[in-house]
Design a protein around this nucleic acid. Structure first.
Lengths: 339, 339
DNA sequence: CCCGTTTAGTGAACCGGTTTACTGAACCGT
DNA sequence: ACGGTTCAGTAAACCGGTTCACTAAACGGG
């Protein structure tokens, strides 16, 4: 073990100031003590290089200062951005994020969630793969949960930041429909394939309304794997004239597939994404995508979480509205196509 | 405050088994007790739903189980991947990563490092922006530090995973030289611009050896900002026939710039990257890049860190060798160009 | 059979803050 | 002058494990 240089404790500060440890504890938190004493204590603490031991504090106060962040699949670049953003935002508020990755596996997700509870995190922010799991209700009894993306079933989650997926789907499909596309492949992440997945439902409903044929195909988020799926979709006949991807990461895979197949975007096939990762604006051609204001999501999720930890009683539900960024990866259909 | 359902403590398990708390503590860790007792204790713990309180354990044992991970700039996609990978690897070994982002600012880096120490993390993994800061020596006295990328000055870091940058630079520049390029722009990250930055030194040395003219230009890692820098570099005259980027993220910015300027890659300008982010293989054209085996780096860094925490005495230095992945973003110069 | 060593387990101190219950003094209106 | 309230601060219990110093019993060699 590396030798840890011993650091000052609260009792030493107490001795130095002639106060009791309790008084020092109060003074440093600016309560229950006179201004004068607080100043004196602060000075002494400074002189001794005293910093409160967060672990001792956590044990005594029952708060760990840590928030678990459970991501569905960190292969996805957008989720990476989100995770990093949340970590940063929490740190700015004197909290720490423990970032875990369920890697697209719902079982793993539940396992990790349990582990986080056993770690006594103060709260849990989760992008649920399986929003219907009964575990959420159980966990919700012992710690505040904020979900991002999907609503957790049962009314137990403290807060949620949900996306108006229907609006996003509508915007994207209408856009493609307006361009004349009538046969569209929809690539949705493999994770969380519960039968009545809202996203899938929206896609089918919207397709029906618009009178377009959609092929819904599950795809992993990992870049290489998405490419393989896209190759299958674009290699078959009849070939869809457009692909709508439920994550930009998958869209990148589609780009790679089009190149491999010698197809031009958007001339031969239009591609639309979802999430608008910073990368997407830089691609050739820039990817049309449904944008979600990641900063806002991060901010909302963290604010709600901290409110929950601090015991604000009310449940919060925040709905994000999308905006479609039309870029150059979508264009009018060229040849009158099948169906 | 959400009501925390009270959980069983070690004393309750002790009461249930008729042993002392100490015996239970030992038994659950499989030491100092008979097989039989261990089994009995395990059973009782299970029945009571007992899980050791990690915070109490941390306070008593002096280990927090958390490792600080301080990244130079999480704008960089490769560093994101690295951070995520390390987080995952640590978790697999029952440790938690606190991921922080210095956002390219050396001052901020030192501030965060200090905060991590005050948080009593068990160790610190850092991709130093400013390897020469004297703070590292100071921190090194109270906790093990593993650096990734650059070697920390002073012999205090416990371990380091360094890249053979010279070899990487050589591979890239030789490749470009072989293709006939004699005027190459080199975009290096703005962060960590210490005067004698090894990377810059290598670039200049190698350029001299090969007889090529290099323009070394600092660039931010953020995708948009890198694009702006690239626009400046490629918009000027004489225009370099190739760009070598010290990070793939910057390379993506260069791609965007070439599109904006109507330049073809690699016909008008060759582009080479550094780090080989998964994305790079999917771009059009796929980006030639210097690859570093991220899995290996993650594994090494975590192994060394855990060794250090567990008190293995020896210092470890691991050197990563690069391999150049030639893809389609680099090609022969077209017109005989300047200098 | 005796003495020295393991083995299994105990009790109490300890890690370093926080919090509760309480006290003495000052302050208040009447 | 008096009971009631607020203010500043205290002593001790507490959070829930770990570890140190120690002991009784079992074991083993000569």
């Amino acid at each position: 073990m590396t030798q840890q240089r011993k650091r000052a404790t609260i009792r030493e500060v107490a001795k130095a100031t002639g106060l009791s440890p309790a008084a020092v504890s109060y003074a440093l938190r600016g309560i229950q003590t006179s201004e004068e004493t607080q100043e004196r204590v602060r000075r002494a603490a400074e002189a001794l290089g005293y910093e409160a031991h967060p672990i001792a504090r956590a044990l005594a106060s029952g708060r760990s200062g840590m928030v678990g962040l459970l991501c569905g699949s960190l292969e996805d670049l957008w989720q990476q951005s989100l995770a990093v953003g949340i970590g940063r935002a929490l740190f700015a508020r004197d909290r720490y994020a423990i970032i875990l990755d369920a890697a697209g596996d719902p079982e793993r997700e539940l396992m990790l969630a349990r582990q986080l509870r056993d770690q006594r995190v103060d709260g849990l922010i989760v992008q649920p793969l399986d929003p219907s799991a009964s575990l959420w209700a159980e966990l919700g009894e012992s710690l505040p949960i904020v979900s991002i993306g999907d609503s957790l079933h049962g009314a137990h989650a403290y807060g949620e930041v949900v996306f108006d997926n229907r609006a996003g789907v509508t915007a994207a499909l209408e856009h493609l429909h307006d361009l004349g596309h009538r046969h569209i492949a929809v690539l949705t992440p493999t994770m969380a394939r519960t039968p009545d997945r809202p996203a899938d439902v929206h896609v089918n409903a919207e397709a029906e309304r618009l009178g377009v044929k959609v092929d819904v195909v599950p795809s992993p988020q990992a870049l290489g794997a998405a490419t393989d799926v896209a190759l299958g979709v674009l290699g078959g006949t009849p070939r869809p004239s457009a692909v709508f991807c439920f994550s930009d990461s998958i869209g990148y895979g589609v780009y790679a597939a089009t190149r491999e197949l010698g197809l031009a975007v958007p001339e031969d096939v239009s591609v639309a994404g979802f999430d608008n990762h910073p990368m997407s604006a830089l691609l050739t051609p820039p990817l049309t995508s449904v944008d979600w204001d990641i900063e806002g999501i991060v901010h909302s999720a963290v604010r709600v979480m901290i409110g929950a930890i601090d015991g604000k009683p009310r449940r919060r539900r925040i709905v994000c509205e999308p905006s479609l960024l039309q870029r150059e990866s979508t264009g009018p259909v060229r040849s009158p196509d099948d169906s």
